[in-house]
Amino acid sequence: MKEPDPDIELLARIGKNEPAAVNEMVSRKLPRLLALASRLLGDADEARDVAQESFVRIWKQAARWRPGQARFDTWLHRVALNLCYDRLRRRQERPLDDTALHDLADPALAPEQQLEAHDTRARMDAALAALPQRQREAIVLQYYQELSNIEAAALMEISVEALESLLSRARRNLRDYLAEPPGAAGLGRGKT
């Protein structure tokens, strides 16, 4: 591992029960976990459950974490991904419902901005949700979570070449989906 793991020092402080370190870890990782799980599951409540369970694992692991092969952030993605997989297996990819879409609204936007952004956001929500699961994982890990291609491929247990193939198909499907008039789109699931 060439670059030092940016989370190591924080983990050590958590291991010493420093309250400020606990808060810093929550500030640092909670948004990432919520973003990952929200985009993979399309359900804000389930995303919160995944984040909460992931933090239980963090607290257990913090004191005994040793710098090794994987970065802590990569390990954390592995944990959260597995929790997401469990949920996806249970519900067999049910589509996003209106409640979930409303829950994902960004409270930072003013009401008129929310209205303006709603159409675009709803289309993107639907487009991401319509992607086959592995393509969605690839685009979420590489694009939104900003993991390196090597990290994303390792998490998905595939080669970098296979990751690139999934990413290309995901982006092609998204372009096709978003190019269609609203209501006519139903692509993606069949285009694996």
């Binding site: 958590i14 291991g15 029960n17 309250p19 606990v22 808060n23 870890m25 929550v26 500030s27 909670l30 948004p31 919520l34 973003a35 929200s38 985009r39 804000a44 995303a47 919160r48 984040a51 909460q52 933090f55 239980v56 607290w59 913090a62 004191a63 829950d103 994902l104 609204a105 960004d106 409270p107 930072a108 952004a117 956001r121 993107m124 929500d125 991401l128 939104y144």
Partner: peptide
């Protein structure tokens, strides 16, 4: 594509579950 910001109360609950 935006996702919901972390709710402060939820974040406090998670911090409270720490070591």
């Amino acid at each position: 594509h935006r996702v919901a910001a972390a709710d402060p109360a939820f974040a406090r609950r998670i911090a409270a579950s720490a070591p």
